[in-house]
Write a protein that binds this DNA or RNA. Structure first.
Lengths: 192, 192
DNA sequence: AACGAAACCTACCGCGTTACAGGTAACGGG
DNA sequence: CCCGTTACCTGTAACGCGGTAGGTTTCGTT
């Protein structure tokens, strides 16, 4: 079974890479990208820093892999979303603080000059705004009950999600992220 | 004039410190706090890194000064605010991307472990939420037109401001921060 | 059994970082 | 005029960082 065994090797390698990406997610959550050292990531998977560089030749390559992982994460086709599912998404996120912290930290860093994730986030937010506008349109048509268009509402929707995440990460006891987001959704659904 | 001259010296020193803080704001905007080196800040005010340490003994002391500066910035008593002034504030912010970038970057970093600005932001957001709730209460009473209480609306208000800032910093051409924020305020003012 | 590639490791380089030590020149107060 | 403080500077310690070079072991294929 030449192909079968070759696959096994490849699969093992791919598993190792995934393991490393997972560790990187953790370390970035704790220290940000700039503060995350390859050595710290390597240690978490039982490798030396140089051993890690065998899988990802540079630190930036590792970051790219992390961002790709995220893309696959929410690869749910936007057309299948509905407004009421957004509340569930936020609730789900509230149970996984690690992931939120990773990408909140990355988002914050990404606005600085020459940050390797900047282009990624710029493009991503453009897409997310489009997705959200589409979701709102299928839910409400060309005008929300409050009179706004989906295109003008989408940035607000995205902003609320992100902004709430920061407040929640800083002080989980003082901010009920899910409840607050549902309040916002209610705001959108009401008539003017 | 013993006191007068003593004052002069002190004033000069204070001016220098302010100059350094200003430079630090710039560098943090460009590289974040972790990425901002004392040498880079020092160079911007024509000092060596060691010369800068004469004014701020540690990097963290400089950060504290930066955060204090911000506190004095918006020391406008919360009771004097009104909802319609918030729109002006956002508009004003849109003209000063540097400051926004500084504190957006710091906010993002602050959610990581052991970040020296974490406690500051946690406390600050608690206060800002309180302020905003008070502003909303004076504007609308115990219930907004849409039925929410000021306390439940305040986190949303803050979240929108922050979230829009990130989207705007990443892609100023695609996001009209002021207009979007006015849309949100309109959402609050409408009756259910 | 032999070979070639993959999966690591050790050793090391060069740089950037914060911070400390100690010196020196300017300057204002007595 | 002297003297202490302020405002710097040079030198350097100590460390962590990303990345390179090159070796060695493991392992699947032939």
């Amino acid at each position: 079974m030449p192909y079968g065994d070759a696959m096994n090797a490849r699969v093992r390698s791919e598993e190792r890479r995934a393991e490393i990406v997972r560790a990187a997610l953790e370390v970035i959550a704790e220290r940000g990208y700039r503060g995350a050292s390859l050595a710290a990531v390597a240690e978490r998977v039982g490798l030396t820093q140089q051993g890690l560089l065998h899988y990802f030749p540079t630190k930036e390559a590792l970051l790219v892999a992390v961002l790709k992982e995220r893309d696959q994460w929410d690869a749910v086709p936007a057309t299948q979303w509905r407004v009421d599912l957004l509340a569930s998404l936020v609730e789900y996120n509230a149970m996984r603080p690690g992931i939120i912290q990773t990408f909140s930290a990355l988002l914050g860093e990404s606005v600085t000059e020459g940050h390797p994730a900047r282009a990624y986030f710029t493009e991503r937010y453009r897409q997310v705004r489009e997705s959200m506008a589409a979701v709102l349109r299928t839910a409400y048509g060309d005008r929300l009950p409050n009179g706004l268009t989906p295109e003008r509402t989408a940035p607000l929707l995205v902003a609320v999600m992100d902004g709430l995440q920061y407040q929640w990460l800083l002080d989980p006891d003082s901010v009920d992220m899910s409840a607050a987001f549902r309040d916002f959704l209610a705001l959108l659904g009401e008539e003017a």
